[in-house]
Amino acid sequence: MATSVKDVAKAAGVSVGTVSNVLNRPEKVAAATVERVHEVIAELGFVRNDAARQLRAGRSRSLGLVVLDTANPFFAEVARGAEERAAHHGVSVLVGNSDQLPGREAAYLDLFREQRVNGVLLTPVSDATAFGDLGIPLVLLDAEDEGADVPSVAVDDVEGGALAVGHLLERGRRRIAFAGGPASIRQVADRLEGARRAIAAVPDATLEVIETPSLTVLAGRNVGEQLAHRAPADRPDGVFCANDLLAVGVLQGAGILGDLRVPDDIALVGYDDIDFAQATVVPLTSVRQPAREIGAAAVDALFAALADPDAAPQRIRFRPELVVRASTGG
């Protein structure tokens, strides 16, 4: 027969309510009592029935996190920051990968509703206004949408795009290309908008937009190979990529598979400043986002909304930072 909470309480010499507090609200119990109860739990092999507890409480001890691409080191760092902060709140993080597909995103949201998670941190594939009736608390992560009445934690990607292209222009580059996509992803659109604003301030500068099907190394490699096959007068002298994975791919396609030199022929800027950016063959100039801080702030915003559902939604925006390395002559 399975060990029950009553068995633990009897063996520890405390009430059932004290055992419940040790499991769910340990800060309300004396440290010596918490230690004694945990010793008894270990001795008796007690395992809590979380499914039954969730039905009674209406919520689980977890929250959901859905990102565009778990293979992207940026989102891995965001998830780590969310997990570290969630642990302080006594909950775990369930991670889902939408792979930039609306259907997969919807499936994860349905799953998390069924699991009765405390809330969801979401990097949406497209328009976030459709999630107003989700039925569980929602925080937009690495995204913001003024039309959605939900908290958000993001970086000013318009400013980040302007920083990247402004740097290329300062280096004397005038034929700039932006590589990124799909255009429906809000971060891609905002970074492109920032690039356009920087270009507009320099009369003799031009901007070519190269839309990619995804934000992966392979998509960037295809762009790099295409640029390498162009005549010198027809190709850009500076490339801004919507993320670092694309930029790494462009570096491979243009400078390894092709015969272009970075930064001599093409100066290259990425976005996110993942750890790998500084370890490429030519260290990559990038726009840094504080990934762990974004994840942690999103968890805090979620619990703030849980604590006061009637409060105005928090909208937290971090500032991007340009990190200059050899790919632009740094």
Rank of each mutant, 00 (worst) to 15 (best):
L227T: 12
A128P: 02
F112A: 11
R197S: 15
C241L: 02
D272N: 12
G180E: 04
G180Y: 03
I41L: 01
N49C: 13
G160R: 04
R80E: 12
I176L: 09
D308W: 07
V95G: 10
P73F: 04
A254E: 06
V47D: 11
T18A: 05
T70H: 02
R221W: 07
L245D: 10
V202H: 13
L65I: 04
E321T: 09
L65W: 01
L55P: 11
T70F: 09
Q187V: 02
N243M: 01
L227M: 12
R116M: 09
A57V: 15
E114H: 09
G270I: 12
G90Q: 11
D69A: 12
V19R: 00
V188E: 00
A162L: 00
L257H: 10
D50Q: 13
A12T: 00
D127L: 12
R59H: 15
P26D: 14
D149A: 15
A301G: 00
P26R: 13
A305C: 00
L260V: 11
V269P: 06
T123C: 05
A128Y: 03
D275V: 13
R221M: 03
D7H: 10
M1V: 13
L207W: 09
E105P: 07
L101K: 15
Q100F: 14
Q100H: 14
D275N: 11
G253F: 03
L121V: 00
V120R: 03
R53F: 13
R292N: 03
E27D: 15
S4M: 12
V153A: 02
E159C: 06
L134G: 04
A179S: 06
V239Q: 14
I185K: 02
S152W: 02
D237A: 05
T212P: 06
T216D: 01
